[in-house]
Amino acid sequence: MFTRVECSSALPAGDNVLIFEGSQLPFRPGDSVAAALLEAGVSPLRKNPVDESPRAPFCMMGVCFECLVEIDGKQNQQSCLTRAHPGMVVRRQRGARTLA
């Protein structure tokens, strides 16, 4: 379970909202996409393309690649290393990355 390590749990008012699969999710300034999604209770973020096992952020520092999502149309983005910004469109990673 994801728990913030800070005193205040209230989300700030304002335009700090990203779009996750059609839903608006608020985030705090400085949050990574993974932190914003976990705060909103979103899990898993993807399924393993081989065995369909559910995957969610684990290390939160870019080592494990379990937090891959599609951000603004770009696949295989590490949500733990990507800072959330207003209007960002995020989707679950579906299967293996497609090649052009």
Rank of each mutant, 00 (worst) to 15 (best):
R46V: 01
L37Y: 07
I71K: 05
S79Y: 00
A10C: 15
E39L: 13
L11Q: 05
D51C: 04
Q77H: 00
L18C: 02
L99D: 13
R46T: 01
S32N: 08
S9V: 08
L25W: 01
D51Y: 04
A56W: 10
R55H: 10
F27M: 04
I71W: 02
R92F: 06
V5K: 11
D51E: 08
P86S: 15
K47N: 08
S32P: 06
Q24G: 14
A35F: 00
R91P: 01
E52N: 15
S43W: 01
L68M: 02
E21H: 06
L99T: 12
T82N: 11
R94V: 13
S23I: 01
E6R: 15
A100N: 13
F27N: 14
E66Y: 03
I71A: 04
C59P: 10
P26I: 12
V17S: 07
R91A: 14
G22W: 12
A13K: 09
F58V: 12
C59D: 06
P12G: 00
D15S: 10
P12M: 01
C67T: 03
V50L: 12
V42T: 05
G22Q: 08
P86W: 07
E6I: 10
F65K: 02
E6P: 00
F58M: 14
L99H: 14
P86N: 07
F20S: 06
A36F: 02
Q93F: 04
L68W: 00
A35G: 06
S23T: 08
N76K: 01
D51S: 04
V50I: 12
